[in-house]
Nucleic acid binder design. Structure first.
Lengths: 341, 341
DNA sequence: CTGAAAGCGCTTACAG
DNA sequence: CTGAAAGCGCTTACAG
């Protein structure tokens, strides 16, 4: 069953393909096509079940109406939620989205950008890995519509939307300190990314300001590709070795999940014996324990803002030079206190 | 910065575009192009940073190397996990994937299929809603490569991969009955889909076989678009009104999440006062409570099998008529007993 | 061994 | 008011 083309319609209607095109694109005014002819053509198109071939349109117009979404791991709640909102926003302006996961694999990440470029996506939405810096810089210099999410490259003038990680962490530390917690551990993942550095920095700064010495051994860094069981094991040992811990700050929900398992294994009550705060991408801890305080990332807001920044770039068009400043949008993280931590 | 085309390379190399195309596509043998010329052309292409325009390739060859993935909700762990595996499998054969969520909205679902068709996707991977039946049937009759996942249409001969819901539910019920649980509730979501019917059916049949009367009031059906708080509230009331409940079987993790919250609210211990079994798409209950038994869906296996079925259709090509039978693949669900429920 | 030509399905000036 | 022509960037017979 061959696809119906504009030519088939033209043939049946006894007009030229260009006339059909004009009618179907609502250019009857510009082309001064009679309403009578137009509605006849429309009728025929509908009868034949015409579906425009978007590949042809894309080739001709240079617009694919496809967005490229590159995240760390689409199966992770945070990124999946981002993807959902982005899909909705994209849909509302007639765009579809192609997704890719990088797994924080630099090689893969670069290859993904290349592939999406070849697929001629009209714009990129990326949660970049450190190794993508050069690639991102190149895209930006080519004026490819592009927005970074969740992370960014200090020094690169590329539109991005991130939460204020420093501020969020500080808020949480403040909260713990006010409640008189003193021996606060920091469990994180070994990842060379701005937001991780900022969280760590805020943790240390908060302690210093409160006059509490920063103890190296109160910080645990798990390797990135650490297996679940091993992560749990390491955190368990970490807690056992540091008797007298008041509280633990988990820098990401990746480690938070394992941390909670470790705490459960050790039979410690939250917040009775150990207060827990976690930088939470989403609301996955809702059920685990109501006594866990959350530094919550506004996923929907991040995605929506990112889409707005992207659309703004579309509107500018390739012609207009981009404003020199980067459209930095900092959205403070929100502290959600579920119980008297 | 204009994109480099095959023409630019041809110009620089002093050959015809078709020669460049042949070289870049490794058709040097068929076209009997000298290795010398070939490597010179390849060198120039590399120097110029040539990136083939896939839109043009797609239009010319009729293959976009894009797959359309339609799920209920990409932000749900189950579908996000499916998406992840599908991405990996697709990537391994040079495909990208366009995703869409239906939200179980029939209108939207149909529109999604239309859009993806217009985008000329080479194949579809769909977790269908009941209302997509006609659309799916049409796609299949057009020999569009297509695989349904997680659900299917009895009577439609369309390749699909689903877990054996009846069997899985039965296994779980068997487990409860052996442990001498007698008043077992069934909490589900109001959804007109085969897999839901099968789970319900298995629940009732299991009771009957065990000589236990099926009580209407031990079954709770929540509306599909029920708000979180309201769902929790309803389940809470349901439990309170049915004193003497032994166990609850949650037919999906959608309701399971709310159910656990309700149980927590009521201060009931698991499995002490109430045994809990849940049909779990993924492993999201791992931390909630180790005492929850899970009927686990093999997400990775579903996705991989689906991709295999799709590839098989690609290989057949449009020419060969499809084998009349549907490639039904039933993969039994797995019972994961975490504690002595 | 290599190149000229046609064509995938559209849209966009442009000519009448 | 409407149509013929060119062209988006490729690939694929086909001619030499």
């Amino acid at each position: 069953m061959k696809n119906i083309t504009i030519k088939d319609i033209a043939l049946k209607a006894g007009v030229a393909p260009s006339t059909v095109s004009a009618v179907l694109n609502g250019k009857t005014r510009e082309s001064r096509i009679s309403e009578q002819l137009a509605s006849r053509v429309r009728g025929i198109a509908a009868d034949m079940g015409y579906q425009p071939n978007q590949t042809a349109v894309a080739l001709r117009t240079g617009k694919t109406r496809v967005l490229g979404l590159i995240v760390e791991d689409i199966s992770n709640v945070f990124f999946a939620s981002l993807a959902k909102i982005i899909e909705e926003e994209a849909d509302s302006i007639g765009y579809k989205v192609l997704y890719c996961s990088t797994e924080n694999n630099e090689e893969k990440a670069r290859e993904r950008i290349r592939m999406l470029s070849q697929r001629q996506v009209d714009g990129f939405l990326i949660t970049p890995t450190p190794g993508m810096r050069a690639e991102i810089d190149r895209l930006a210099s080519q004026h490819k519509p592009l927005v970074l999410m969740d992370r960014y490259f200090p020094g690169l003038s590329v539109p991005h939307v991130v939460v204020d990680n420093y501020d969020g962490t500080q808020m949480a530390m403040q909260h713990l300190l006010e409640k008189r917690y003193r021996r606060i551990a920091f469990v994180t993942i070994l990842l060379d990314q701005v937001q991780m550095h900022q969280r760590r920095q805020a943790y240390e700064d908060s302690l210093r300001v409160a006059g509490i010495p920063v103890e190296e051994n109160l910080v645990l860094q798990l390797p990135y590709h650490c297996k679940p069981e091993e992560s749990v094991q390491q955190i368990r040992e970490f807690i056992s070795e540091n008797q007298g811990l008041d509280a633990i700050f988990f820098a990401t929900n990746y480690v938070g999940v394992y941390g909670l398992e470790a705490i459960k294994d050790l039979g410690l009550s939250i917040p009775g014996q150990l207060a827990v705060i976690c930088f939470d991408d989403h609301d996955i801890f809702r059920l685990y324990s109501p006594a866990i305080t959350i530094v919550k990332q506004p996923v929907a807001l991040i995605a929506q803002t990112a889409m707005q920044l992207l659309i703004r770039q579309f509107e500018k068009g390739a012609g207009t030079p981009r404003s020199s400043g980067s459209f930095q949008v900092l959205q403070p993280a929100q502290l959600v206190i579920r119980a008297s931590t």
